[in-house]
Design a protein around this nucleic acid. Structure first.
Lengths: 338, 338
DNA sequence: CTTGGCACTCGGTAAGCGAGAGTGCCAGCC
DNA sequence: GGCTGGCACTCTCGCTTACCGAGTGCCAAG
């Protein structure tokens, strides 16, 4: 159905449309690419491609524009990742290595990604549930109010205050702190519940209920959807693409503010440790139906995700390359700094 | 120069322009407001107001539009704060009281502010330098790498890793932790340097250089512009106001991504614990020259700032009221939860 | 000082027109 | 059977023209 030449035509259409932002016609195609055939032949191929649903025309007697399926085919079969230039790699490396702490790493990464790709960049903070516990700190705020601080191996810090039923004194806290740290050091967050139970057994009988409550609250509050932090950058780039979006960029800005949704999208990536591309309506979010998401996990065990969002008419090879490269660098930086 | 009636005319112009989004003419003014005079008289007043620079016409034979100075006069002398409705207050209260931790408080606040005002909302995280130190935690990551975590009375947590020249063991860390906490508890961050010096003197001679280095780095990294965290919400609202901004909303989105700049603007508020309004070119940021910023500090000692940014043509009384009310609620919530 | 009248200005919209780009189809050629 | 050049047709886009209406400034009278 689709011979080699038709695929070449599709590739040429996508490439031209991405750069010119305008529907591409048979004549222009024949001129700009050396396909070795005449415009008339290309017209026939185009008609076939349109029958298959890979391209469409905005109106009669306009050029063709790729559909979501067209981009999908292009991404899957017609292109290779465009690696970053040596200069770009160097710049990325030195820029990320200057980071002071986790916050700084994430902030720099997201800005870098936005700048390199010219799209909106999204970076998820390293997930707690998949990283290991480095240290747990319990601080007495008032006799009946305390704060639990968990420090992970990725440098991420999570805190929560909680109220308890009876007065707690400093010694109890110190004991609890020691016991807990002994029990949880190096454990995954998901393994903590088991370890924590054994802690309660070690403590004096009268405080056990309180201790149990503390641990329960702590585990619960830390386990439940607590990876909901993302950093965004490059939203101003959306204004560039005004013409690409039907109507307004408002629904897109709205969708971007729903961090929970963004995280779900990032997490849904099909193949782990591989760059994932989702195009237009493949994204199950109304406001993003005219955008594409290029994303990847980063770090050991896919400890977090990052990606860029832009119009479906985007430079897929370039963006895939940038996302891939930056995901790798971030993973490396995180390992070094832990 | 400007008698009572001219001021009424200016007020009417601002109010009409804010609601209709269109230049307002003398006839429409006479109809919609009962000023008791004819359009011709209003025209004369308008001419006077234009001479004074309070209003302008986009082109000959169009209605008048307030200038930055016009809005300034309106805000300073022609309006009173519009208090929130009882229902709104209740909703705000219950919504904010459901917050779990500091992150949650800030996130909820900024969303609320954006929703209530329909503008872009900005909330600064409680400043560390003005809040008190609740607890300092030092964690040994590797023998030569450690992490310092500072917990403030507002529940904010700041961490930093640092490398030291010689190996440090657990006992030293424990000692240091105890000494430091004893010395700094309840102190303002700005008072820590003094307190910390005395700590070093207490420690064994051989580790003093290391200890000093640790403290120095910690103080330095925590004192220096470390209040650079803000939360944003409602950027999608900008798209509504597309027509208000010359050209594009891009420069505005860009300015909003410069968190450092935003913080500077928030901090520049003239009167502490009072709502501050800066209009158009009064904001010393190029990209924001067609917007206004309504801001206020919140919490004891102005521990942080919050505000909304929108087109100069905004509902000042309403926004001032909302910013004021929400700043108060947040201050209260923060005090309760510390 | 206010008011009604009046001539004038100018932006915005609708309608008409032509140019240009692109298509689909067909007949001929390899 | 597939490729090619030619040709008629379609449709958008940009430009020009004309018109309408809102709004103004000024003036003379109350």
């Amino acid at each position: 159905m689709l011979d080699e030449r038709k695929l070449s035509v599709l590739r040429a259409i996508v490439e031209d449309y991405v750069t010119t932002r305008e529907p591409v016609g048979s004549k222009a195609l024949a001129e700009r690419h050396s396909l070795g055939v005449s415009p008339a032949t290309i017209r026939n191929d185009m008609a076939a491609l349109e029958d298959e649903g890979y391209i469409t025309q905005p109106h009669t007697s306009a050029g063709r524009v790729p559909t979501d399926s067209g981009y999908r085919l292009f991404v899957d079969r017609l292109t290779t990742v465009k690696p970053l230039s040596a200069a770009e790699r160097r710049a990325i490396k030195t820029f990320l290595e200057g980071a002071l702490d986790l916050d700084d790493i994430v902030t720099r990464t997201v800005r870098l990604l936005a700048q390199v790709t010219g799209q909106v960049a999204v970076v998820q903070y390293p997930s707690l549930t998949r990283s290991q516990v480095r240290h747990v700190e319990i601080v007495l705020l008032h006799p009946r109010r305390l704060m639990v601080v968990v420090i992970s191996t990725t440098g991420r810090v999570e805190q929560r205050t909680l109220d308890v039923a009876i007065d707690v004194d400093d010694e109890t806290i110190a004991e609890l702190r020691n016991n807990i740290n002994e029990a949880v050091d190096g454990k995954l967050l998901s393994e903590i519940p088991d370890a924590a139970e054994r802690v309660a057994e070690k403590m004096a009988v009268e405080v056990r209920p309180t201790v149990a409550a503390i641990i329960a609250t702590m585990v619960e509050s830390l386990t439940e959807a607590n990876d909901a932090r993302v950093a965004l950058a490059g939203t101003a780039n959306l204004a560039h693409f005004n013409t690409d979006f039907p109507g307004s960029i408002q629904p897109i800005l709205e969708a971007l503010e729903e961090h929970v949704v963004l995280l779900r999208l990032l997490g849904e990536a099909t193949s782990p440790s591989q760059v994932s591309v989702r195009i237009g309506r493949e994204l199950p979010v109304e406001g993003l139906s005219s955008t594409s998401l290029v994303s990847s996990s980063y770090g050991a065990d896919g400890i977090g995700h990052l990606g860029v969002i832009g119009p479906t008419r985007m430079d897929y090879p370039g963006n895939i390359g940038a996302v891939h490269a930056i995901a790798q660098y971030v993973g490396r930086i995180l390992e070094e700094s832990s």
